[in-house]
């Protein structure tokens, strides 16, 4: 059953009417970008792509992205640096610019948060989830973020509590909610389930 608070990522779609395309891709997200610009030289010529090969990809797609001949391609070493670059580009962008995000969920979430900060409504951002299903989880108790959570329960990387991953997603935090699992039964943990590979 879909999670009501979790965003739906319908897949990238080229908005032919956009004046500019601002594309953020992580890891396997590059494949989704390649797919929408395939054979669309005009659109690619007005695209700025920010790409980080990222943890979820076995392969670096930078060369193939360069072959699209985008207006600009920024290959960044990490999600964090990609977001910093994206923020710089958003700061100078005008209406008519369409924002795209593809990659792991945590990365998409950060792109949406950047868009929001610059006045872009999250509903107008095209998104595609590629690669790992790992979740970014915020501990509701200490507010610390743990990246790449693949199992529940897991141990908070900040406060050390055993957290259960609740099916509740915050767009603003780009994270699921982690809640302590064993406080009613100290020391008794449910079996660990690998759910989000």
């Amino acid at each position: 059953m879909p999670i009501k608070s979790r965003p739906i990522y319908p897949g990238l779609k080229l908005d032919q009417r956009a004046r500019r395309h601002l594309v953020a891709a992580e890891g396997e997200g590059a494949l989704a970008v390649l797919a929408i610009f395939e054979g669309k030289g005009d659109a690619a010529a007005s695209a700025t792509i920010v790409y980080t090969p990222g943890g979820s990809a076995g392969e670096d797609h930078a060369e193939k992205l360069a072959d699209l001949k985008p207006d600009a391609l920024h290959v960044m070493p990490s999600q964090e640096t990609a977001i910093v670059r994206l923020n710089g580009l958003l700061g100078n962008a005008a209406m008519g610019t369409r924002l795209y995000a593809a990659g792991v969920e945590g990365f998409i979430g950060k792109v949406i948060a950047s868009g929001l900060e610059h006045g872009v409504d999250h509903q107008s951002i095209y998104t595609e989830h590629c690669g790992s299903l790992a979740r970014r989880v915020q501990c509701v108790h200490c507010k610390g973020m743990t990246e790449n959570v693949t199992a529940t329960p897991f141990t908070c990387s900040h406060c050390g509590l055993n957290l259960f991953v609740r099916d509740h997603y915050s767009r603003r935090l780009a994270a699921f909610q982690g809640v302590v699992v064993d406080c009613e039964t100290p020391g008794e943990l449910p079996e660990i389930e690998e759910l989000y590979r």
């Binding site: 999670i3 009501k4 608070s5 979790r6 915020q138 509701v140 507010k143 609740r166 099916d167 509740h168 997603y169 915050s170 767009r171 603003r172 935090l173 909610q177």
Partner: peptide
Amino acid sequence: DFDIGMNFMEWHAP
């Protein structure tokens, strides 16, 4: 802190 910014359907998700 977690739910701020959510819409009506989202904050009732659980």
